[in-house]
């Protein structure tokens, strides 16, 4: 729902930009709270500007008193305790290798576990899901389905009856072996690097939380 127009006229561009950034940054907050926070901050800016004679000159001070968008977002999600290290490691291992053990379904379970963790932001969860879909399964699939592997069989049906002749058939475009290796290794490396980055973020967040929690 777009914010209603200010009674005293249009808001200065700085205010509109601040509200846009706030709306974006609050995406991971519960929907009802997000709307309420944005409504109240909008009303705050409008009320503060209505009480001054020169909104364009005073908007800087009004926004400074409000605090940064990060301040508000931090207050909206304070001291959220991250999930345990064991749980997050398990989620990432299943995300990476689950699909190889139980094709596709294993990876979906990994995705569900990652998304239900309290450790990562939505953006980080999207990165984990999309880089690389399927985890290490993507690497296996790329290896198996890149075109041009030769079909070879022991020639039981060799016309002259000579035994154990190997017949190899190539058809269509043949991907050089080094390309197949490169693609498969790159996919696996990128996928594992993403998982490692998420692990590091998680461990940093857990130690940060322990340091700053007064209970």
């Amino acid at each position: 729902m777009p914010a209603a127009m200010r009674s005293g006229g249009q808001r200065p561009p700085e205010a509109e930009s601040y509200l846009r950034r706030l709306r974006r940054a609050l995406r991971s907050a519960p929907a009802s709270e997000r709307q309420e926070i944005v409504d109240n901050v909008t009303a705050h800016i409008d009320a503060a500007l209505d009480s001054t004679t020169c909104p364009e000159a005073d908007i800087g001070r009004v926004l400074e008193e409000l605090g940064t968008v990060d301040d508000i977002v931090a207050a909206a999600t304070p001291n959220k305790k991250p999930s345990s290290a064991e749980r997050d490691v398990l989620a990432l291992v299943i995300l990476e290798l689950g699909g190889v053990v139980v094709p596709f379904v294993g990876w979906v379970i990994g995705v569900v576990l990652v998304w239900s963790s309290r450790t990562w932001s939505s953006a980080e969860k999207w990165v984990a899901t999309l880089i690389v879909p399927g985890g290490c399964l993507a690497s296996v699939v790329a290896w198996m389905f890149l075109p041009g592997s030769e079909a070879c069989m022991i020639g039981a049906h060799a016309p002259n009856g000579s035994p154990l002749q190997e017949v190899c058939v190539k058809h269509g475009f043949v991907t050089p072996m080094w390309v197949r290796i490169l693609v498969a290794v790159t996919l696996a490396a990128v996928s594992l690097a993403t998982a490692c980055a998420l692990l590091r973020i998680g461990s940093r967040r857990r130690s940060h939380h322990d340091l700053h929690t007064i209970s």
Binding site: S32, E33, I37, V41, H44, E65, G67, I72, V73
Partner: peptide, 11 residues
């Protein structure tokens, strides 16, 4: 920061 009051009110 006055803005930090609003998330708490919503919560």
């Amino acid at each position: 920061s006055q803005g930090t009051v609003y998330p708490l009110l919503a919560r």
